[in-house]
Structure formats: C-alpha cells, structure tokens
Design a protein around this nucleic acid. Structure first.
Lengths: 297, 297
DNA sequence: CCCTCACCCATACAATATGTATGAGCAGAC
DNA sequence: GTCTGCTCATACATATTGTATGGGTGAGGG
C-alpha cells in the first residue's frame, strides 16, 4: 500500500543495483526483483535494461526521479494533512490561461470583491491543458480560459457550469524595427522571423486549424522562438524579434500608441470567447459564476 | 499497489457507503471495510465516524478529496510520462521564471541568434520550483532564474554550470487609483490591499526572509490576491487592485511614465541576480552559456 | 587463461495478505 | 412490529509476496 512502490523505485534509482536496493528495503533480492517487475507491468513498459547479471535504469525512469520524489512527498503531506486536519480558509483558486489574466481578471476581481468583500484569490496560471488538468483534478476551484468559435465549449460533464465573460480575438502583430519591414500594402516577407506557438498549445491548435501564417512552426518559414507563454511572446514582439499572434486585449494599448502594428487586415484574426467554468457542487465558485454572469448582462 | 488505496478512498467519498463503494471496487463489503481500516492504520487516525450500521466520512477526509484526486491523476500522468518517454529534440528548451522572460530573454535571444543563426528556443515558463524541477528532470536544457543575494546560487552539483547575465531588484509598487492613496511622506496605510506571493514561491521566500511589508499573506493585513504569476501581479497593480512586489525590469517603463509609483524609498528593495544554468554534458547549452557569458563582460 | 565474486532471474515452498461466505446486531422506513 | 439495508466479526479459501536455493553471466584480478 501507500508508498511502497514509490520508495522501491526511488531506492533503486539511488542504488542502481537490485541487491543493494532490496537490502535497503529489507527484503530479499528476488522479492525486490518481483516488485519491480510488478511496477513495470503496471506501467506497461520496462524501466530496466537487463543484462545477464546487471541492470541499467532506463532514461525514462531516471528522467522522472524528481517527479517520483515529489509524489512521495505529496503523499506524505496528504497523510499529515488528513491526520492533522484544520478546516480550510476561504480562498478561491483560479486556474487561468496566461492571456485572460491580463485582460479580464482585474475587472472580474472588482466585481467579485463587491459581492464578497473578504474573498481571496489564488491565481494558478498555465497553458490550457495544465489549467484543465488543475481544474479537473480539483487543484483549482474555477477555470478561466479562451474558447475559439470553431472549437466551442470544453466538453465537460453536467456537473460543470459555464459562463461567458466576454469576447476577444487573436491578431498577428509586429513591433520594434520589424514595423518598418511591413510593406505599404500591409504584407510582410514570408521569411520574416516568427515567434510561434507549440502545435499542441491551445492557441497553436486554434491558429493551425485556420492555417494562419506565422502562427506555428508548420506555418512559418522562419520560426525563431517557440513558446506557449503569451506574455513572453508579447515582449519578444515589442522587441522586434518577429511576428506573433496575440489576443487583442493584451496589447490594445500598444496598438493604439503605435508600438505594435496589427497585421489583421492582411493575415486575418481569430475570434475568441472568454469562458469561466466551475463545479456545480462548489458553492462559492457557483456564486462567483452568478456574480460574473450578472455583471455581463 | 499503485492507485488502489487512492481509488478506494475516492469511491468511498463518492458513494458515502461501504457496501456501494465495495461494489464499485468489485470486492465484497468486508474486504472493502478491511482496506479502509488499513488506510486508517497507515494514516494513524480514523477517517470514518462509525455508527452501528452506517458510516460518516470525516471532514478531514472530505476536505482532502481534491488533493486525493490530484494525486491519483498525477500518478497516472507519471505512468504515462515514463511509458511514452521522448528525448528532447534539437531545440533549446529554456525553463524560466516568468519575470526574467520579460527583461532579459529578448536581449539574450539577440546574442544567441548572432552566434547560432538557426537556433530555436522553447520557453518553458513557471515558478522557480517548477523550473528547477523541469531542469533537473531534463524537461529543459537550461534554467533562467533570479537569485537573491542572501540565498546565493542554487545548490546544484558539479555537473551544472552557472553564468550570471545581470542584476535586477524587487520593488513594492502601486498603480491606478492607489497611487493617490500614497501619503506625502511616501507611506501607505497598513491595511491597503496587497497582491501577495505564496510563501512557498521563490519571491515569497525571498521577501519573507527580509520581512518585506505587503509581500506575503503573513506580512499583509489585507492580502487580496495570492499568486506567483508576476505578469498577473503587474496587471493587477496597474489596475489599482493593491500593492505588489515586482522586479524593476518588468515595469521600469511604467515607473518612468508614472503609471506606477515605486514605494522602495519607504519599504525597501530586494537585490537580485539573473542567473543561467546548464548541464555541462549538454554541448549546445554550454555553448550558449559561453555566448551569454561573453556578452556580459 | 582461469578463478572468484557479485549480480540477476527462475523455481519451489512458506508466510502473509486479502478475498468470499455467513451471520449478528442495529437503525430507519413503512 | 417487521422488513430492509447497512456495518463488523469470523472462518476459511485464494492470491500475493516473502525466503531459500541454485543456475547462469560477466567483470576484475591474479
């Protein structure tokens, strides 16, 4: 039960040797060997490259040593938390894509604070997948994210409630010296450097689907930097490192001031909704959805 | 092994009834009951308040349902990660705290591009712990982060090389309407709202150690929002939601324009270094360290 | 080149853990 | 008052996991 297999694997990683690991675990080597085989059965893959009288630990297992340690620590924390339980405080944890944190959360925070003056927030930023994972796992009470018009709402079950806060759109922009590379007709050389989204990121998928130029590695002749971190993309764009696709709400001020130039007229734009999700069983979260829903009627 | 006990507990939480939970787990009710007793033995405390013919789940267990789900999910993730391990590609993956991405990475990117014109980057933003974890795990080739003067270099082994790119410092700032709440002598009411760092975040630890007012929940009378996401803090500060501590490099423009007011004269500032780390065995990463080291002599 | 040592796995059997079947006791609903 | 569904205890069956033993292998040292 509990930590056995995690401890087994950690000890194996430390010793690099079944016999010594078995000794550390206070069982015989054949018993330890059988445990590790059981672990491999559960994984569906081997973690040891076995010689006739030696074993090598696979890179996959070695690369995950930190994670395994973290898991073991977390399970110990869980035990402690249950054993020394103290009723929780009144903080709402919000998993949010980076971009909506900029444009929407301050306004939302104002509305929330009016209704629940003592309410506190914990912002958990991340890419969409990480945010959805945090939310579904219960690491966050609510989820704040963009939705493209083509994809529609996230496919949650009936126990998850959804509210729309507003609209936004993704536009291609350039800044710094690259502004002067834009031709009079609004076009740009195809080999202009681009700051691109990973194809498995949310914006990457949305823009790939619409085949937007400069959006991902596949759609760019010169993808200089790849990151899902839209704030970082904004900085690189402002510094003239390349073309980037960003939510308009993140840089409307810079567009207004001329610090960046929108290429939407030529390269198009991608419509987005800003959505909030919460579990219907979470009373505080549902109350907040109500507050934010009312604020946008 | 593995998830059994976590799944047992989750099913019990869902059903609230040993017999139904046992059925869900495809064992008989006495076997299930014995498992839960085993779990209680491991915890060292009971998680059920037992009646003659019913059980009530303890608040301690119920309050931790989210954490137990998260653990179960994380163990599944671990399994998947080990089973589908893929060595890193030919792009340099850089784990970076959010803040240095703004101030330093564009300059660094220029220098890197001069030396290796075809080089590509993958930015992996996160808090310091997550970045260190990514780096040590091999999910990132390099680590870009702040170091406080009091803490010094991260305690890596001999196989990790370190280079300093530059200096920065954390300052307390206000924006929006809160600028007018600052008194003539530069002080602010102690119950002014604050956007605070988690105490286990990097900046949280640095600022806690120096006991900087408004920096963490412990050091604030009115901690309105807690997040480790410095870009988000900046947005909230700009919107006047509260006092925030931020690296000067992130908002020197706004300080110059008056959009935010620095309270460093009264509340102090925290000196930081900007450091880069790479594994000595990673040739491309070490070459980049050389490039960046040379750029700052 | 040979021997020794340490290592890993297979196998058989022992010990322990965990399952089922059954029944007692209890409390709520009708 | 009776019935139903629930929980726990107990006895026994089955599965899991431990030890003991031995075979095979390869590296290192003489």
């Amino acid at each position: 039960m509990d930590l056995n297999w995690l401890d087994d694997v950690l000890v194996l990683l430390e010793e690099g040797n079944m016999s010594r690991a078995a000794s550390r675990r206070h069982i015989t080597q054949p018993a330890f060997s059988r445990r590790i085989r059981g672990f491999e059965g559960w994984l569906g893959t081997d973690v040891l490259q076995r010689g006739a009288n030696s074993v090598d630990i696979s890179p996959a297992l070695r690369a995950n040593e930190v994670e395994i340690r973290a898991l073991a620590a977390r399970i110990r924390d869980l035990r402690s938390k249950i054993a020394h339980f103290d009723p929780a405080g009144s903080t709402v944890s919000l998993a949010a894509q980076h971009a909506p944190v900029f444009s929407t959360f301050p306004d939302m925070a104002v509305h929330a604070k009016r209704r629940f003056p003592a309410l506190r927030f914990r912002l958990r930023p991340g890419n969409l997948r990480d945010c959805v994972t945090m939310f579904l796992r219960g690491d966050a009470n609510m989820l704040l994210c963009y939705e493209s018009e083509s994809a529609g709402p996230l496919p949650f079950g009936d126990s998850i409630r959804r509210v729309i806060w507003g609209n936004d759109y993704l536009i291609p922009v350039v800044g710094g010296a690259l502004r002067y590379a834009v031709k009079h007709d609004g076009t740009l050389a195809a080999n202009t450097p681009a700051i691109v989204y990973p194809e498995n990121s949310y914006f990457g998928e949305v823009l790939n689907k619409s085949e937007r130029a400069f959006a991902t590695q596949a759609l760019s002749e010169n993808p200089f930097c790849e990151t899902a971190f839209s704030s970082g993309i904004k900085e690189l764009v402002l510094n003239g490192m390349g073309v980037g696709w960003l939510p308009f709400s993140m840089l409307y001020k810079e567009v207004e001031s001329g610090e960046v130039i929108s290429l939407a007229n030529h390269l198009g734009k991608e419509q987005l909704k800003i959505a909030l999700y919460a579990d219907v069983r979470d009373e505080i979260a549902v109350s907040l959805l109500d507050v934010w829903n009312a604020a946008h009627r």
